[in-house]
Computed example of a mutant assay.
Amino acid sequence: MELLIIYLLVINMIAFAMMGMDKSYARHKKRRIPEKRLFGVSAIGGALGAWIGMQVWRHKTKHTSFRVGIPLLFLLNLVVIYYLSGLIGMNFNYIA
């Protein structure tokens, strides 16, 4: 259970940082982080961090694929986390 929480914290911090880095790279005309990589990190649990990064850094907010795709990946992340929590015995009853 603790490993899942640590993993999610780390992957979301990475996704958030990647959005900021890519924005900085774009401003300085440097080589960018591929969109496939940004979506990949989001798909493996970092969608919330990417979504927050989009808002904070004002990055990729005009791209329909990101405006729609990242929130959908966040919902997918929630479903997978809920499923995994059942497998490892986490109890979400205390949240409600």
Rank of each mutant, 00 (worst) to 15 (best):
S65H: 09
A26Q: 06
E2N: 13
S24E: 04
N93R: 12
Y82K: 03
Y83C: 01
M90Q: 05
K36R: 15
N12C: 07
W57L: 10
S42A: 15
A15D: 05
K29P: 00
V10L: 13
L76N: 13
L48Q: 10
P71I: 12
F74M: 04
K62Y: 09
T61H: 02
L3R: 05
L84E: 03
S65Y: 06
M21F: 00
E35H: 03
L38C: 11
I88D: 03
L84Q: 08
K36C: 08
Y83T: 01
V79K: 14
Q55F: 07
I44H: 08
I95S: 05
I52E: 03
P71D: 09
E2L: 13
I5R: 05
N93L: 12
I81Y: 09
R27M: 11
L48V: 15
H59I: 08
Y94M: 09
S24V: 02
F66I: 10
W57M: 13
Y83D: 00
L3W: 10
I5K: 06
I52A: 04
M18Y: 06
W57G: 10
Q55P: 07
A96R: 08
R37G: 06
G46I: 10
V56W: 01
V80F: 11
K30S: 10
G69H: 06
G45I: 11
N12F: 06
M90H: 02
Y7P: 02
L73I: 12
H28V: 02
F66W: 11
G45F: 07
G45S: 08
I44F: 10
L4A: 13
P34F: 12
E2H: 06
M21A: 03
L75N: 06
S24P: 01
R58L: 01
V80D: 12
R37L: 15
I44S: 05
Y94L: 07
S85F: 01
K62G: 13
N91I: 04
K29G: 08
